[in-house]
Design a protein around this nucleic acid. Sequence first.
DNA 1: GCCGTTTAGGAACGATCGTTCTTGACTGGT
DNA 2: ACCAGTCAAGAACGATCGTTCCTAAACGGC
Lengths: 178, 178
Amino acid sequence: MGRPRGFDEIEVVRAAAALFADHAYDGVSIDDLVARLGVHRNSLYKTFGSKRGLYMAALRWHVENRVRPLVAAIGGADDVAEAVRRALAVQEGGSGLDLLLMAAVERAPVDPEVAAEVAAALGALDQALAARSPSPELAGALTSALLGLRLRGRASSTAGDCEHAAAALARRLDPHPC
Amino acid sequence: MGRPRGFDEIEVVRAAAALFADHAYDGVSIDDLVARLGVHRNSLYKTFGSKRGLYMAALRWHVENRVRPLVAAIGGADDVAEAVRRALAVQEGGSGLDLLLMAAVERAPVDPEVAAEVAAALGALDQALAARSPSPELAGALTSALLGLRLRGRASSTAGDCEHAAAALARRLDPHPC
DNA sequence: GCCGTTTAGGAACGATCGTTCTTGACTGGT
DNA sequence: ACCAGTCAAGAACGATCGTTCCTAAACGGC
């Protein structure tokens, strides 16, 4: 009962995730969210409690719907090089790690709950890679490399370069044919 | 002539760089800067023009005094693996890439001048690595990996893990003894 | 048709943002 | 000793921040 909602909650969360990934937490104001999400202030606070509540929902949505497919793709690979290739393929010019990247750099140092979420997501990537890696430490390095590659991909104007770079890294990781 | 300054300009720039690296651009207010830098509002605006002016000065200082030594260290290496090892050694538990990382993720997408500065710094790292790399694309991937490793180092509570991860990556990059 | 409940639509709140203004302290040159 | 010029100190500005309050609109149940 009551008046029906004029918005789709998960659609709002997804749009918020895109905004936060693009402009950082402090770079997105409530007015921005209200203007671009089609939700009005009151509904937003009624549904998510606060700006931070919406941010946490967006971050969790992002981990669940963007990072998890990445982990799954890695799980289907035979060795590390193939895993890296598949991870890059799943992102396919897209924003598969953008919010995670932003959260790790901007919010994790000052928000323990964000830090925990980020650590869990990175840990999942580590585990998926470690299962196909000769050493567990290398898996951590590769997770880091994936983040770094996405970082450059979004910062650089010539995004294609990063795919070539990633391909070169995967090639280098292949067992050398001696 | 005139009253002498009560602060050291480059010391202020360095402290500002540390603050911006820790809390992001929007996370540091003028009041924060005034309180922690020992400079008062008027002097700050007289010297740097605006908050953004101080930020640009801090970013340029960081590139000049933190990234450049990294490039130099890479230049002294014999191969890629050694270059990565040296780059990590120069950072030595420190913040050699923190502001660059933050600028690339947070400011570069919305501030073209920051984007140019970041691109130049990353390009310098690329070149230094490319000179010692079998393929130029691999150099780009390694620059990305260095950023990603530092990203995890600052996000993770157990910072030592990242050094092990970096070491594992360097080891993997070594030409395999067949 | 009225009631209880939930949402939409805005106005409004105090706090904080980046920036500017005003006043007084301190300097070198004449 | 006075003047011109630079800096320190802090109050104050309008704008914007996240958040709350109030009223009208749209539903299900009796």
